[in-house]
Design a protein around this nucleic acid. Structure first.
Lengths: 327, 327
DNA sequence: TTGAAAGCGCTAACAA
DNA sequence: TTGTTAGCGCTTTCAA
C-alpha cells in the first residue's frame, strides 16, 4: 500500500504468508519439500498480492535459451507473416526463442528495433533501420533484404533480384509483351523495388521508360485496371503476389483474358501464387532458405566464427523466375 | 581459459581492459562520460572475449515490457502463421513483446510450453497441452480454441462452431446436397473437428452417418477426388481452407465443375478462400477478433481484474458461415 | 573521466 | 519441512 506502485516481489509474498522466500519459491514452482498446507497459504498470499515472478530474476539464475529478435515492417502482409513463421521454425531445432515484432503497429515504430535490441541476444530486421541502435555493442545484428553497403553496420542477407529480373524481361520479350507497366503499392514502401522492376523491363520497350503506377493494396483495383487496359498495356508486373492475386480476381470480374489480353506477374513466390487460376508467374524468393541462411549467420556470429560486420557477414539468396500460366 | 566454459561477463571485459565494470557499461551502451580512447580499448577487449551482455542482468535493472508467449502446433500451417501475426499486432499497441514458438519443429515438442512458461509473463497455447506445466503459479495461461472443461487450468478462448455448422448444414440441404463427405488431414490433429463436422452434416443424409476420409495435406488429392466422385459424393467439406483450395485446384485439373458436380466447403476463413475461383464457402473465424479477445483476457489477468481460471476467464468467439460460389 | 557501492528478483545449495 | 546464504550480470546512483 505504499504510494508508488512498486513491483510485488517474492519477499512481499513471503512476508504476507509468514514464511521465507525460499518457501514461496517452492510453492510457486511445485517443488517437493513443502507441506500442502503451507503451499496453500503461500499461493493464497500470492494471489491476494497479484504476485507474478519476474522472468529476469528467474532467467538470471537459470540461464536460458538464446533469444532472437525479429522486427519486420508489417505483419498484416502475408509475406512477412510467412517469413516470421519460417524464422521461428528455423530457430526451433536450436531451441532458440524468437521475439517477433511488428514495427508498423507499435506506438513508436522508430523505437521498436532499439528497444528489442536490449532484450534479446541477436537482432534481425527486415525493412527496418537497425543502424544507430544504442548499445548494440557485441550483439549480432542482421539486416534482412539489406544491401552490401550496409555491411558496416552488421550482417546482411541480400536478396538478389537482378538475374531473375533479367530473365523475366527475356521471358516477356519472347512471349511478345511490348507495353509493360509496374503496379506499386500506394504508401511507397516498395518504391526502390518497383523502380528496379521498371528499369529491368526496358528490353520490352526498346529502351523507353516503363511507367510505374500506384494502387491501394485492397481497393480501386477494378478502376485502375480499366484505365491500364484503356491505355493498351499488355503486361502488368505487380509489386507483390498478394496484389497480383487481387488484380487477377478483378481482371476475372472484368472478363479479361489472362494471359491472352494482358499478362500478369507477381513478386515473392508465396504459395497462393500457385493456387489461383491461372497460376501466377512470379519472381520467387525461397523464404525457407532466407530464414535458414539468416539463422546460420547468427549462429556464426554468436559463436564468434563470423565477424559481426563486414564482407564475411554477407549472404546472398537469389530470386528465381517461376514461369507459370499467367504470362 | 578455464576448463569449463563459463559465461563471459562484464567483469571479464573490465579486467581485460583494465577498467571498472561501469566503464565497460558506458562503452557498451554508447553513454557519455568516457574517453574515445578508453571506449576503443573496452570494445576491443569485448570483441576479443566474444562478450555479449546478458539480457537478464540488464532486464533485472531496467525492467521491461510484458512478454507474452504464444505456442502453436505448427507454423507451416497458414492459419497458425496468420494467428501468430495477429497476436503480435494485438500486443503491439500495449508495447508488449511476443515470443512465438512452434511445438512441432522443436526438439522436444512436449516441453516447449513448459520451458517457455518460465521465460514469459503470460502464456497462450493453441492445440498444445498447457496443463501440468511446472511453475505456472500466478502466471496467466490461456488455452486458445479450448473448451469450457479446461477452465480449471486457466483461461479459455472458445471458438464456437455449433451454430455455424448448423447453418452450413441448412444451407447445403437447401442447395440440394445429399451425399456429403468430410475430408480430414492425415495425421489426425483435427480428428475432433472432423467428427463434429460429420455429425453436423447428418441433416443432409436424413440422419445416416457421414463418412470421414483422410488425405495428406499436399499429395494424393487427385486420386482421392477421383475415388470420391466415383462414389458419387456431391459435397466435400475439407478440414481447412488450405486443403480446400488445393482440392479446388485438383478438381479443376480433373475438369470437374464446382459447385455443379460437387460442392466444396472449407474451414478457417483465410483470405485465400476469397481469392480463388470459384470463391470458397467456408466456416470462418475472425482471427483478428480471436487475437484481440486473447490479449484483452490476458490484460485482465495481469492487472488482477480477471481471475486466472474459472468461468470468468472464459471468452467465446463464434465461427460464421461465409456462403460463396463454391457451394 | 573514472570508480565504488547498492540493488534489481530469483533459485540452488546448504543448514537447521 | 523450513530457513539461511550466496550469488546470477547488469545499470544506476553517488563519490572521487
Amino acid at each position: 500500500m505504499s504510494g508508488m506502485s512498486r513491483r510485488v516481489t517474492i519477499i512481499d509474498v513471503a512476508e504476507r504468508a509468514g514464511v521465507s522466500r525460499q518457501t514461496v519459491s517452492r510453492a510457486m514452482n511445485d517443488l517437493v519439500g513443502i507441506s500442502a498446507e503451507t503451499r496453500e497459504r503461500v499461493l493464497a498470499a500470492a494471489t491476494e498480492l497479484n504476485y507474478r515472478p519476474s522472468r529476469f530474476g528467474r532467467g538470471l539464475v537459470e540461464q536460458g535459451p538464446i533469444t532472437l529478435g525479429l522486427v519486420v515492417e508489417d505483419l498484416s502482409n502475408a509475406y512477412f507473416a510467412e517469413l516470421g513463421a519460417a524464422v521461428v521454425r528455423a530457430c526451433a531445432p536450436y531451441g532458440w526463442n524468437v521475439v517477433l515484432a511488428d514495427a508498423l503497429h507499435a506506438p513508436h515504430p522508430e523505437r521498436v528495433a532499439g528497444d528489442l535490441a536490449r532484450r534479446v541476444d541477436a537482432l534481425v530486421g527486415y525493412g527496418v533501420l537497425t543502424a544507430d541502435i544504442r548499445g548494440t555493442g557485441g550483439m549480432p545484428v542482421v539486416q534482412l533484404d539489406g544491401r552490401a553497403a550496409q555491411l558496416a553496420e552488421g550482417g546482411v542477407i541480400e536478396l538478389a533480384r537482378e538475374t531473375a529480373m533479367a530473365e523475366l524481361a527475356e521471358h516477356l520479350v519472347d512471349a511478345g509483351a511490348r507495353r509493360p507497366v509496374v503496379l506499386d503499392l500506394a504508401g511507397g514502401r516498395g518504391r526502390t523495388r518497383s523502380l528496379a522492376l521498371a528499369a529491368s523491363l526496358r528490353p520490352l520497350t526498346g529502351g523507353a521508360d516503363v511507367p510505374v503506377r500506384e494502387v491501394d493494396a485492397r481497393e480501386g483495383h477494378r478502376e485502375i485496371l480499366e484505365q491500364l487496359l484503356h491505355e493498351r498495356f499488355d503486361t502488368i508486373v505487380a509489386f507483390n503476389d498478394e496484389l497480383a492475386v487481387r488484380l487477377l480476381r478483378a481482371l476475372r470480374g472484368l472478363g479479361v483474358d489472362v494471359p491472352g489480353r494482358v499478362r500478369l506477374v507477381g513478386v515473392d513466390g508465396l504459395e497462393i501464387a500457385s493456387l489461383v487460376t491461372p497460376e501466377l508467374t512470379t519472381l520467387s524468393i525461397d523464404i525457407e532458405t532466407v530464414a535458414q541462411q539468416t539463422v546460420s549467420l547468427v549462429v556464426g556470429m554468436l559463436d564468434g566464427s563470423v565477424p559481426l560486420s563486414g564482407a564475411a557477414a554477407h549472404r546472398t539468396v537469389p530470386y528465381r523466375l517461376e514461369v507459370r500460366a499467367s504470362s
